[in-house]
Design a protein around this nucleic acid. Sequence first.
DNA 1: GCCGTTTTCGGCCCGACTGTTTTCAGTCG
Length: 571
Amino acid sequence: MENQKIAHIFQEIGDILEILGDSRFRIRSYHKAAQVIHAYPYHLRDIYEKDPKLLDDIPGIGKALMEKIIEILTTGDCQTYLRLVKQVKPGLLDVLRLRGIGPKKTKLFYDELGIDSVIKLKDAARRSLLRELPGMGEKSEADVLESIESYGRLTARIPLHDAMITAEGILAYMHKSKLVKKATYAGSLRRRRRTIGDIDILASGPSEIIDYFCEFPDISYVEAKGDTKATVILESGVQVDLRVVPEESFGAALYYFTGSKAHNIATRKIAQKLGLKINEYGVFKGEKSIAGTTEEEIFTTIKLPYIIPEMREDTGEIEFMRKHPNYKTVSVADIKGELHSHTDWSDGDSTLEEMAAAAKALGYEYLAITDHSPSLKVVHGLDANRLEAQIREIDKLNKELTGLTLLKGVEVDILRDGSLDMPDDVLSQLDIVVASVHTYFKLEEKEQTERLIRAIRHPYVNILGHPTGKLVGQREAYDVDLNKLMHAAKDTGTAIELNCNPKRLDLDAKHLRAARDMGVLIALDTDAHNTAHLPFVKYGVSIARRGWLEPKNVLNTMSLPKLKKHLNLKK
DNA sequence: GCCGTTTTCGGCCCGACTGTTTTCAGTCG
Ligand SMILES: Nc1nc2c(ncn2[C@H]2C[C@H](O)[C@@H](COP(=O)(O)OP(=O)(O)OP(=O)(O)O)O2)c(=O)[nH]1
Ligand SMILES: [Mg+2]
Ligand SMILES: [Mg+2]
Ligand SMILES: [Zn+2]
C-alpha cells in the first residue's frame, strides 16, 4: 500500500511537470520510477530498513528519487510534490486525462484562457473560443468537445476473458478476408494482463485490410484510419487498434505490438548499443534489415533468449533470462488436477458425477470437491452432517472411477476472528481444506492480516483461498499485508491460492514473484461452480507465468501421490 | 532524473495519424 502511495506521488509529479513544460526526459524518469515501484514485489520500507542504499540499486531509481522515497517513508510527505501541487490546479490533471489532449494543449488552454477544469473547457469549446488559439481550428475544437462527451462512454479496463472473446470474434472476421495473410492479437491481451485497456490486433497483407476491418459490424465509429493502422470504438465502448504490416515484418510487428512499452524501450536500447535499430518492421543494421519475420529472430539478433509475452514488462526479465536462458515457466500441460471446486451440494450447478467426468476429460489425475461451509447460508453451505454424507458419497464414487481420484474437501469460511466454520474432527476426515474469507472485508489491515494468518496456521488448512478478495471492476483487495501472509504460509507449508476465475485472478505478478522468491507454493484453483469453469485454469496459468512461476512453484502440478504426501505433512 | 563492457557528460525508442501547417507539432501506439 505504501509502495502504491509512492508510485502515485511520482506519477503525479511527472504529470504536473508535463503541464509545466519541464524536460521530457526528467518526466520520463518520474513516470518510469512510478511504474517500477507499482510493480515492485517488496515493501520499499523493508528495503529501506535493511539498508537505505539498496533503494538506489532498483533500476530506474537514482540518488534523487531514492532521497524522495526516504523522505516519504520517514516524514509521510514529499516537499517537491507539495510544492508542485500548489502550482497546478487539480482540474488540469483531469483535462490532461482526456483523449487527444496532452500536456501541451492543457497548458495552452490554461495559459491563454485560464481553463483549469473539464467543465470550463467544455464551456470554452461551446463558445468557439478554442479555435482562435495557435495550432487549433474548427475541427480540433470539435474534437475537444467530442472527447469530453465520449469520456463517460468509453469502457474502463475489461477482464482478460471478456477481451479474449471479443478478440476471437474480430479475428474470425479478419480471417474471412482473402487479403489477410496472418492475423493475431497482441498488446496486453497477448501478455495476459488481468485487465485489458484496449484490444490490439495485428495483421499482415496489403493496406486494403484496413478498409475491410473498418466494416466490422460491431464498430460504433472509426476514430483514426491510415495506410498502416486504424483505431475504432466498438458498440460496447471497447477500443480496438489494428496494425497492418507486410508479411516479412510480421515477427517484428508482433514483437512491437505485444509490448510492453517499457520492455520495447529496454530492448531497443540494447539494440542501439549493438549498433542496431529495432522498429515494427524489423531489426536494421544501417539501412539493411537483418530480422523481422519471426519474434525468435529478433531476440537472436540482440543476443537474448526468447522471452515469453507474459514476462515482457521490463521488471527484470531481460537480465534474468540472460542468466537463465533455458528457464521454463509453468504451462497448462503441467497442471495435474483441480483443488477447489463446487457442486450442486452447495451453490454449484453441476453434480459430483458431472464434475468428475469433466475433470477426467481434461486429463486430470485428481479433483478436489470443496463445497461451502454452513455459515454461508445463501450458498447452502454444508453442515457437518451433510459434509460427512458427501464424504461417504465421494468414497463410493471413487470406487467406480478410473483414472481420476476425487479428493474430499471443503471451502471452509474464515470467521471474523480467524477461526474456522467447521469443527476439527470433521476437517480431520478430509483430504484437503481450502479456507477463505466471505465476510468482514472491511477490517483494518492489522486485524485482517492477523485473522488470515490465524487461518493459515490452522493445522488442517492446506490452501488460503482467494487471498485478496479482488473482483475486477467491483471490489478492491481487502486491506491485508500479503508479504506477512506469505511468511506464515512458508512457515506452515500452506499454499496460497491464485483464484483462476477471470473475475478474480486476485494475485498479480508482483505477489507471485514474492511467493516464488520465498518458496511459497501457489495453488492454481478455478473455484469452478460448474463443469464449464474448469478450463479457466488457463487464465491462472497465464498470470502465474507473468509471475515467473515454474511448475515446482505450483501445488497442483504435483502428481497425486506427491500431492497426498504434501497435504499430510502439515497435520 | 537516470545511466555507463567505448562514456560520470550527454545522450535518452521509434514511428503513424491528424489538423493546421507551408513544413510540423501534438498525441498516441
Ligand atoms: N516502442 C514503443 N511501443 C509502444 C509504445 N506505446 C505502445 N507501444 C506498443 C507496446 C504496447 O503493448 C502496444 C499496444 O499499446 P497499448 O497502448 O494498447 O498498450 P497495452 O496493450 O500494452 O496495454 P493496455 O491494456 O491496452 O493499456 O504498442 C511506445 O511508446 N513505444
Ligand atoms: Mg492494448
Ligand atoms: Mg492499443
Ligand atoms: Zn469457492
